[in-house]
């Protein structure tokens, strides 16, 4: 592995082995179990080699996933919801990041701190906070009834709307921080020069600011989209029993239905959907590390 000193080899080997054992090997196991059939046994799936040593592989779980309409709808809905949350984060996060990057250094560091703070508070509690707001007798409904805008509480909880708000809220810092990093590095004189030369404000934005901010936009969108796709807590707490998202279906398929091969197939298909976004993000992060 290594040509250097023995101790260098040891220092390389320890984290290498750890990741091999606890990161790479588990994926091989998911793949293996996704190719088995569910049986009522312990563990609840057929072995890869039967007693005679013959290879027994079954694509039934994948075929079921691809032909079952409910799964198609669930994947589609997860993609749509994650994409919508990403767009909302971008619409709100871009002007926020721009505003932070353009403020005075002292204000800027306070504003940044206030973006980072919610990130350190548990994700679960931040989603929970919205339960109190969106409830039928929660803060928003009470407020609306108090000012007389409505007589009956509006059903916010257990809807797609609630999940969308929850995702936008939880992942907004992931959008603002990379956007801020690129916007802060940008040379403001470029925008001024363009305007001096007769560009309109919108023209200068689309011709200069937007192209320069694009790496941050891409990174921010991926950082929101990828975790939102596999979201488990938000559909559980804010979405209703009907609102199935893929992360929750995976969990229930495993622990409630105890269909391990199907749960593994669900995970692999999710990973296949995310493989392009994940590789894009890694390439971006590698390039960013070189530039830093």
């Amino acid at each position: 592995m290594h040509k250097g000193h023995t101790w260098e080899r040891v220092i390389t080997a320890i984290p290498y082995l750890w990741l091999f054992l606890f990161f790479l090997l588990p994926f091989a196991i998911i793949l293996k179990i996704s190719l088995a059939d569910p049986v009522i046994a312990q563990p609840p799936f057929t072995p890869m080699f039967d007693e005679q040593g013959n290879l027994s592989v079954s694509f039934d779980s994948f075929i079921f996933l691809l032909t079952d309409k409910l799964y198609a709808i669930t994947y589609f809905k997860s993609v749509m919801l994650a994409a919508s949350a990403t767009m909302l984060c971008l619409l709100l996060g871009f002007p926020m990041a721009y505003g932070i990057a353009r403020s005075e250094p002292t204000t800027r560091s306070i504003l940044l701190l206030l973006i980072v703070l919610p990130f350190w508070i548990s994700f679960l509690l931040r989603v929970y906070a919205w339960m109190g707001l969106l409830n039928n007798y929660g803060v928003i409904n009470n407020m609306l009834m108090w000012i007389g805008a409505i007589d009956q509480p509006i059903q916010f909880m257990y809807t797609d709307f609630a999940m969308l708000i929850g995702m936008t809220y939880s992942y907004l810092p992931f959008m603002v921080l990379p956007l801020y990093a690129t916007l802060e590095r940008m040379d403001l004189d470029l925008v001024d020069a363009a305007q001096d030369l007769g560009a309109t404000r919108t023209g200068a934005f689309w011709d200069i600011t937007w192209p320069l901010a694009r790496p941050g936009v891409i990174a921010g969108c991926l950082l929101v989209f990828i975790p939102a796709m596999g979201e488990y807590v938000i559909p559980y707490l804010l979405g209703g029993g009907e609102s199935l998202l893929i992360g929750r279906v995976l969990f229930d398929e495993f622990f409630v239905a105890r269909d391990w091969p199907l749960a593994s197939s669900v995970a692999i298909v999710l990973l296949l959907i995310l493989v392009v976004p994940i590789m894009l993000l890694q390439r971006y992060q590698a390039r960013d590390a070189e530039n830093a």
């Binding site: 588990p26 179990i33 563990p43 488990y232 593994s264 994940i278 890694q282």
Partner: peptide, 25 residues
């Protein structure tokens, strides 16, 4: 090695969780 190091950062939690549970089992 460098691929394995950064992958857990971007992996959805449900996939990491499921894969580790299957390993432990």
């Amino acid at each position: 090695f460098s691929g394995m190091i950064v992958s857990p950062l971007v992996m959805p939690e449900v996939i990491t969780g499921l894969s580790l549970l299957l390993l432990f089992v």
